[in-house]
Amino acid sequence: MSKKKIQSVGVRSFGKKADIFFNVFLAIFALSCVFPFVFVIIISLTSEQSLLTNGYTLWPSEWSLDGYRYLMDLKEQLLQSLFVTVTVTVVGTLINTTFTSTFAYAISRSDFVLRKFFTIACLITMLFSAGMVPNYIVMTSMLGLKDTIWALILPMAISPFNVIVMRTFFKRTVPDSIIESARIDGASELRIFGQIVLPLAVPGIATISLFAALGFWNDWFNALLYIQSDNLIPLQYLLMKIQANIEFMTQNASMGSALSSGAEAIPKEATRMAMVVISTLPIALSYPFFQKYFVSGLTIGGVKE
């Protein structure tokens, strides 16, 4: 066997070993990411007595749905809050994606005269903020949005970080020659953006949409500031209030027999973990639907000579 053949065999053997090593490494890493959430689900299905006796275990001695039953007693408010959260997430993500992508596209074009001014303005908002008090005054006194669903959407209607991400994506993905060709053919800027730029920017749009959806889904601070009506409370804020009520009843159980018996009957740990599952599972299940768009569109289009 010649020297070159021996070297090629050695390279292939090393390549196979390296593939096996990295596959095993990535599998272990993936399991380490999934395991905490699986463990939370197990704890949420564990009886309170088993948790007090044996602590946290992967296979509890007694399974129970008491945590979920406790939350089901509040199912009307939970469903209302879930509806509010889904509405805010869907509408807010559409608004955020629209504003972010159009703003980023404008400042990504070299022929836009004010691109530097708006880019600097976007960067300044990333580094500096007016503060909570001016934001509250603007939302309540000037815009009159207190105790409305728009108070949960408009504060996050645009993300400066996502603008910078999409600006870079547009500059690297959308060739100037394609846009110039469309302009020569008489296409307007809106038509260029809708029919040429957006199909090429599907991965970037999907990425910022996922970031925006995650932000709207997990938001509770705006509800704390602006929402007083029970019909407009989002899911995350409602779960925080339930958690606070459980802690209050637990810490003040010695104040009276009725409060003490009520606090002892609450599956505290299982309910906490059940709230984590309820608040996390829907957004976690949406990841596979977004994932396929991350790579689609990367090779769509191009400049033909």
Rank of each mutant, 00 (worst) to 15 (best):
V174F: 07
G194T: 15
Y287D: 00
A274D: 06
F169K: 11
K75T: 08
D73N: 12
A121S: 08
G10L: 15
T87L: 12
V197Y: 03
S209P: 02
P60T: 00
A258W: 12
V197H: 01
L235R: 06
F22T: 03
L224V: 10
E247Y: 11
A213K: 04
A270T: 06
W150A: 05
L281W: 05
T299W: 01
T98Y: 14
I184W: 00
V24H: 10
E305M: 09
G297A: 04
Q77C: 04
L123F: 06
L214R: 12
V277I: 01
L259D: 02
D73H: 12
G144W: 07
S101G: 06
N252E: 01
Q195W: 02
N135A: 03
D219R: 14
A270D: 00
I43E: 00
I149W: 10
F193K: 04
I278G: 04
V86K: 12
M255I: 15
Y70Q: 07
F248E: 14
F216D: 05
V11M: 13
T148D: 01
S188D: 10
F161Q: 14
T119A: 03
T98L: 14
K171C: 04
A157N: 01
I178T: 03
M249L: 05
L152K: 02
L235I: 09
L82I: 10
I95S: 01
D230A: 12
